[in-house]
Structure formats: structure tokens, C-alpha cells
Amino acid sequence: MSWLTEHVRPKLRSLLQRDVPDNLWTNCESCSQMMLTKELVRKKKVCPHCGHHMRASAHERMQWTFDDGKYTTIDLPTVPTDPLHFRDSKRYTDRLKAARSKSSLDDSLLVAHGTISGRETVVAVMAFEFMAGTMGSALGEAFLAACQEAIRRKAPLVIFTASGGARMQEGVVSLMQMPRTTIGVEMLRDAGLPYLVVFTNPTTGGVSASFAMLGDIHIAEPNALIAFAGPRVIRDTVREELPEGFQRSEYLKDHGMVDIIASRNELPALLGRLVGMLSPAAATSANAGPAPSHTS
């Protein structure tokens, strides 16, 4: 028995054992089902078992949205790094360096242009992977740059929102971005350009209280949290039980704050149809009416 235990069993284990990468499998956050990570990425990070939409990076959303995944990012304005010289357990500058190193982004908004269903479109994506998508002065400047790029190209602007709200390390400077981004939306409207908002989980705080709620059309991914203050804060304040699904996409659609709920796999085609219907070129051709007939 000792010969089997000491010699045969270890050899069998070494033959059967394989090195399994840590990221080979992913567990769904909602139903806890296990699935191959490669397969999950192919399905745009939507659980095939329960339909739960997992968090996606800014670059992933760009690739899923534009035709053939091709897009060109635009240069964004630079802003003062630490306007308040803020420090909590770490210096704000150190937090920014860590976030930039981890996400490979300069801040929490990525802006690019390309085509969706053949139509020139500017797309802005909030990066939750960068300090929870919080809104600071860099995001405000980037949003205005996205609006200006859309106006320059005479193209619609689509924004994917995902945010924990204002960035506390910038204090009142962060809150100032609420009216500044609102001005950007007004610029688009003055130019007659469509502005489409896609809510993803979560969209909260000052973002939901400003440019996120000013779209011509509001689209939401299923079961996304869309709120100013979270349900726990509201429940503790009013001391009442909240309705089931409170502040989720479906609840907001029932109450008129969201127009369409669309799964991630449906979004590119849906955005293509909306961009085609609402673009200035489409409106011009529709207003022109049928061409006059000529008779000899």
C-alpha cells in the first residue's frame, strides 16, 4: 500500500493535473452560475443563464458600439490635477496616479468618433473603472469637448453613463460640473443635434442630476440602478419600505423617466436606427418630401 501511496499516486496526479489560469472561469454576480470567461466576453458580458449585465470597461463599450469595433478617440483638455490640494488617507494626486495606472485612462470619460450603422457619431463612455466614474473637472471638460466634437462633425452624441456621482476630492469644483455639462447639452440642442443617453449600472449622484437626465431619448440596460441618492439612504431617511425594484431601469420606465430598456446585444442596432432617424441629414430628406415628377 505504501508503494501505491508514495509512488503511483503522485505520478498519476502529475499526469492528470493541469495548470488552470485564475481567470479561466467567471461567476455571475446575480445567479452565481459559473461560465467560461472567454465565452462571457463573446456574449458582451451578459450572463447566458440569467441575463445579468456585468460591468464593462469603457473601451469594451466603444468596441461593441461602433461598426466593426473601429473608432478614433479624441484628445481631451487638460485640467489642474488637484485644485483643492485634497488629502484623506491618501493624497488625491496619488489616487489619480493609481487609477490611471490601473485603467490606462486619463480620467473617467472616454470620447471617440466613428460610425454606427454607417452614420457618423460621437460616443462618450463613462469609465466606472476610474474612481467609480466620479465626476470631476476633467469629466466636465471632456463632456464639453464631446459636445463640441459632435457640433463640429454635425453628428449625434451618444453617452453611456456609469457613475458613483460627484468626486469628493474636488468638492465644489465637482459640483460646478453639473451646470457646465448642462450648457453642453444646450449647445447640442441649439445646433439641432440628437443627444442619446444610455444608462448603465449604476448611474447615481450629480451625474443623474445633470446631463444624464437631459437626453432626447433615454435608453437603459436591464436592472440598472439609476438614482440621485441610493435606496438605502432614502429608506433610512423616510423610514418606509420602498417599492420592489425601486430606482431600477424597469421602475423608471414605468414612471416615464426611461424610454427604452434594451439588452447590451440589442444596443448597436437600436442606436443605429435612432441615429438614422434623428440625424440632421435624415430630417432634411424627410422634410424635403418626394422629388417632383417630370412629364414630357
Rank of each mutant, 00 (worst) to 15 (best):
E141F: 09
E244M: 11
H85G: 14
L110M: 08
I234W: 01
P179Y: 03
R61E: 15
E6G: 08
R248S: 07
T37P: 01
R273M: 10
G192D: 09
H85D: 14
R232G: 00
P156V: 04
L12Q: 07
N27H: 07
E120P: 06
K44M: 13
R61Q: 15
G118K: 04
W25N: 00
T26W: 11
C47K: 02
M257F: 14
R180P: 00
G289N: 05
S137M: 15
D259E: 08
M131K: 02
G184L: 04
N23Q: 08
M213A: 15
A145M: 01
K38L: 12
T37E: 10
S174Q: 06
L271R: 04
L252K: 04
L109H: 01
P156C: 05
G192Y: 07
G192L: 11
V233S: 13
I219N: 02
T200L: 11
D67P: 09
T295G: 10
N287A: 15
M277D: 14
E60W: 06
N223A: 12
R18T: 12
V173A: 09
A166P: 00
C28E: 05
M168K: 10
L4I: 13
G133Y: 03
S249V: 06
S137K: 11
A269S: 12
L15V: 09
E244S: 14
E240H: 09
H85V: 04
D259A: 03
G136F: 10
A112W: 03
G165S: 07
I217V: 10
V185P: 02
V8G: 01
T134P: 00
G276K: 04
L225T: 12
Y92K: 07
R100Q: 13
D236S: 13
L139Y: 12
A282N: 08
